[in-house]
Nucleic acid binder design. Structure first.
Length: 919
RNA sequence: GCCGGGGUGGUGGAAUGGUAGACACGUCAGCCUUAAGAGCUGGUGGAGCAACAGCUCCGUGCAGGUUCGAGUCCUGUCCCCGGCACCA
């Protein structure tokens, strides 16, 4: 196609043609030798610019992944040139299910396949011109890293933030293994297609719910995309309301069922209660006569697979029991129904059919009474559907007339006084289940001692008073003897759930190595359980008896919750990162990556806050880890579909770089559109950028003797140069790479025109006029431009011909290369050296602009009549601010629109616009 | 259903409330060439009038509004993309 070697060679040209592969491999080697991107040990003005590190899968990186990395690379190079000390690291989120599944299929150890993939990824990134400091590389699957992942888990445990409890998990009966939610596709196992069932297993959780409020409030002080913040808030799902107690009727009198409601003001309208099929109340409330029907119903409901996204019809069955509505003091029936989510709130719901759409549907279906207690301020409610809006309370005795939002507070006050309810805050966020019955992850560093378990022993945390500032102080004690455990040197902050017999692995025994003697094929238990070496010599840290290790591994999101801290001090063997390194580099200034809007970004913020509270971070780092977050948009295939093997539309850097070079790839990706927009790949666009890169090459290589004869040309070049510096600088800061490149193109277009004019000038002075006038000059015979008037030879020139060039031109080319350097690091480095410089362009200071030089002498002012554009006038800067002058000139310029009209008003914006309002 | 983000030429996209379409892709015409490619010059939102050089009208999903002036602000509405989804 375009890039065939022969097509690039310009016939008769004495200058070397642009060969990206030669240029790029040459400078890649040079940069590696020179340690160009070494991170400072003592940063003065630090910038931590971070990518979301990739999972090294068997598929190579495609151009979509590269987009974000190019963006941060440009930013990093830019900041370095501006004199910042930049930390720009890369590493590998190496643990995870795909590698393990691949291992199961092929028998190749995940350790091996992962590390092969890492090699490929690293090569691709290097070829693409990324300026990572590989001395800071990390690999989450290396013991040097996961030792600290385990250490952090124990920290959580000690702070009462890790606990073990029974939980429902996705279980594939055929593969006999637990599946992550992502592995359950439409209710079926993604590997074998078997229906996934729920199974109760004892699991480790991290208490992220404790941080719910701070995870919400922290969002206010960071520069993230609004959409991401909103999604996190929704995920946490804080809602305020009331807990209301309903007393059970008849022989169960004295027992209360609590419900959570955001609309206690509708309490008089509660005509029934609903509980989910798995509620503990089902057994207690089902009356004798209903037993068979209820158990049949529950059997039917629990056997139904809850397909994701599919709307279930609401079904239910009456338990036979009643509760008392504390407001009306009337008895209302308790139903079991499938539309109540267990595990949210108290697991029971008051049915207010008049003012809740779901309750309305249910009441209609089972013919339950509907009682209207809220009246819309806009008038009478339409009784064919529930009215869920705000309004005035009616039919509710002394509450009548209260209106939302005040009514809610008033009702809660009323209920509190009566002792039947209280204010309550609910969250959707659940504690984070981190246990995985999988091989390829960090082992959970806990030990189970059957002997201690028998005696009911464990370590637990207990309050030892307060610190005076209202915060409780805790310490760890033996659960039976209540004796303080002196081995544990840390401050405990909260009381932990605990399980008898469980102890953290002592810190000096970390890491708990992932065993190698493991057959990772699934048989129903965690693969590590079958390792012999894993359990060898394990003893109870409390009593010394023979004990067993936890055989589950941690969710890989645990690794990525703190990896960005490790980047600051990746080789530290005595701490997860030194306080000094944390102080120097954190928090992250700019974090770029797509997806993971809730999971990773929420978990990482949670970890950070825990570390902050544990005083393991320097205070200067603050309690939010990522100050600025941006997400690159998806790159779609050329067919506008998502890149996927299925469509065969994947484009990788390896498809582009051999033909066009990494500079073209980088520039094209940045020019496609706004950084965060979804945009389709287009090969002809790549070729366009290839042509631009070549134009830059020729502009510099072929025009080494340009002189700008006319003073106005000199001024124009200087003006545009400074304007370009201004706009490119601003655009990079705001990640508007597409418009930065557009300004660079305009600058190149101007320089090209000027070079040509200079050449024409020379030709005219050399040849007979009639040889040129009226005839196009063939490109192949175009000689290098020349300067005759103002000579300033370049130092160190090898050429036998005098190299003559004027200062303005030289300066402009220099500025162009510097501005282009972060985008196209290879070609700019090559041209920088070709124009006589010795040191790397990437070590040069970023060019400055002079605002005064940007000012044009004259300004074009649009003239409007009644807001319609009718012409422009050209006036100089000073006159352009003078209304009288502009008005006179403007009137002259558009006579036919003003003739015979009355000018009622003149709108004048100095140096910008004039508008005549006429009638 | 709810929450976010968007609808601008043939295409990707530019536009602090002030000349809509920067910059590119594509395309058309011309130069160069045995030819192809590359390169170079010029045109290119639509419609109409006028014929080299000029002019008019219409144009940012749709309908209104605010304003001297709206792609931009406000109200309503339709469509597309992403996320959440029986959370009481």
């Amino acid at each position: 196609m375009v890039a065939k070697k022969s097509t690039r060679q310009r016939r008769g040209s004495p200058k070397a043609a642009y060969e990206p592969s030669e240029v790029e491999s040459k400078w890649q080697k040079e940069w590696e030798k020179g340690g160009l991107y070494e991170t400072s040990n003592a940063p003065k003005r630090k910038k931590y610019i971070l990518d979301m590190f990739p999972y090294p899968s068997g598929d190579t990186l495609h151009v979509g992944h590269v987009e974000g990395y190019v963006g941060t690379d440009i930013l990093s190079r830019f900041e370095r040139m501006r004199g910042a000390d930049v930390l720009h690291p890369m590493g590998w989120d190496a643990f995870g299910l795909p590698a393990e599944n691949y291992a199961i299929k092929t028998g190749i150890n995940p350790d091996q396949s992962t590390h092969n993939n890492i090699k490929i990824f690293k090569r691709q990134l290097t070829n693409t011109g990324m300026s990572y400091d590989w001395d800071h590389e990390i690999d989450t699957s290396s013991p040097e890293f996961y030792k600290w992942t385990q250490w952090l888990f124990i920290l959580m445990y000690k702070r009462g933030l890790a606990y073990k409890k029974m939980a429902d998990v996705n279980w594939c009966p055929s593969c006999e293994t637990v599946l992550a939610n992502e592995q359950v596709v439409e209710g079926k196992c993604e590997r074998c297609g078997t229906e996934v069932v729920q199974k109760k297993l004892s699991q480790w959780f991290l208490k992220i719910t404790k941080y719910a409020d701070r995870l919400i409030s922290g969002l206010d002080k960071i520069d993230w995309l609004e959409g991401v913040k909103v999604q996190q808030k929704n995920w946490i799902g804080r809602s305020e309301g009331a807990q209301v107690k309903f007393e059970v009727e008849n022989d169960k009198a004295g027992q209360f069922i609590s419900v959570f409601t955001t609309r206690p003001d509708t309490l008089f309208g509660a005509t029934f209660m609903v509980i989910p099929p798995d509620s503990e109340w089902v057994e207690k409330l089902t009356t004798k006569g209903k037993k068979d029907a209820v158990s049949e119903y529950i059997k039917l409901e629990t056997s139904r697979t809850n397909k994701v996204g599919e709307e279930k019809g609401k079904t239910g069955i009456f338990t036979g029991s009643f509760v008392i509505n504390p407001a009306t003091e009337e008895k209302i029936p308790v139903w079991i129904a499938n539309y109540v989510v267990s595990g949210y709130g108290s697991g029971a719901v008051m049915g207010v059919p008049a003012h809740d759409a779901r309750d309305f549907d249910f009441a209609k279906k089972y013919d339950l009474p509907i009682k209207w207690v809220i009246e819309s301020t806009r008038g009478k409610a339409n009784e064919s559907e529930a009215y869920t809006g705000e309004g005035k309370i009616v039919n509710s005795q002394e509450w009548n007339g209260w209106t939302t939002p005040d009514s809610i507070g008033k009702v809660i006050e009323y209920l509190e006084k009566k002792g039947t309810g209280k204010k309550q805050v609910q969250y959707h966020l659940r504690d984070w289940l981190i246990s995985r019955q999988r091989y390829w992850g960090a082992p959970i560093p806990m030990v189970y001692c059957p002997a201690c378990a028998k005696k009911g022993l464990s370590w637990f945390t207990t309050s030892i008073g307060s610190d005076g500032a209202g915060n409780s102080k805790f310490e760890i004690r033996n659960s039976k003897t209540n004796k303080k455990n002196e081995n544990l040197k840390f401050k405990i902050e909260n009381s932990a759930d605990w399980s008898a017999g469980w102890y953290p692995v002592p810190e000096d025994q970390l890491p708990v190595y992932l065993p190698k003697d493991v057959d990772f094929r699934p048989t129903g238990e965690s693969p590590i359980a079958r390792s012999k070496e894993f359990q060898e010599g394990v003893v109870c840290p409390n009593c010394g008896a023979k004990a067993k290790r936890e055989v589950d591994t941690m969710d890989t999101y645990v690794d990525s919750s703190w990896y960005f801290i490790r980047f600051t001090d990746p080789k530290n063997t005595s701490e997860f990162a030194s306080r000094e390194a944390i102080k120097q580099w954190l928090p992250v200034d700019t974090y770029v990556g797509g997806g993971h809007v809730v999971q990773h970004l929420l978990f990482a913020r949670f970890f950070w806050k825990v570390l902050f509270d544990a005083e393991l971070l320097d205070e200067s780092a603050g309690d939010e880890p990522f100050l600025k977050l941006r997400a690159p948009g998806w790159i779609l295939g050329q067919d506008s579909r998502k890149m996927s093997k299925r469509w065969g539309n994947i484009v990788t850097p390896d498809d582009i770089i051999p033909k066009y070079g990494a500079d073209t790839l980088r520039m094209y990706e940045m020019f496609m559109g706004p950084f965060d927009a979804v945009k389709p790949w287009n090969l002809t666009g790549v070729e366009g950028m290839w042509r631009f890169i070549n134009r830059v090459w020729r502009l510099v290589v072929e025009n080494d003797k340009v002189n700008l004869v006319e003073e106005k040309d000199q001024q124009e070049v200087v003006r545009v140069q400074h304007k370009t510096i201004q706009s490119v600088t601003k655009d990079i800061e705001e990640l508007h790479f597409n418009t930065a490149i557009a300004s660079l193109m305009e600058f190149v277009n101007l320089l090209q025109d000027k070079a040509q004019e200079s050449t024409d000038h020379r030709l005219q002075s050399m040849a007979k006029k009639d040889a040129i006038v009226g005839r196009q000059r063939p490109a192949s015979t175009r000689p290098a431009s020349i300067c005759v008037e103002r000579a300033s030879p370049i130092a160190g020139s090898q050429s036998t011909v005098d190299r003559i060039i004027c200062a303005e031109w030289k300066d402009a080319i220099k500025a162009l290369l510097l501005l282009l350097a972060p985008f196209a690091p290879y070609i700019t480095e090559e041209l920088w050296h070709q124009t006589g410089s010795e040191s790397s362009i990437h070590l040069q200071p970023w060019p400055e602009f002079d605002p005064e030089l940007i000012q044009e002498e004259t300004v074009a002012i649009p003239v409007q009549v009644n807001g319609k554009f009718r012409g422009t006038i050209e006036v100089d800067q000073v006159q352009g601010r003078d209304q009288k002058e502009v008005e006179t000139r403007a009137r002259e310029s558009v006579p036919k629109y003003l003739e015979g009209k009355k000018v009622n008003k003149v709108i004048f914006v100095p140096a910008r616009l004039i508008n005549f309002v006429v009638s």
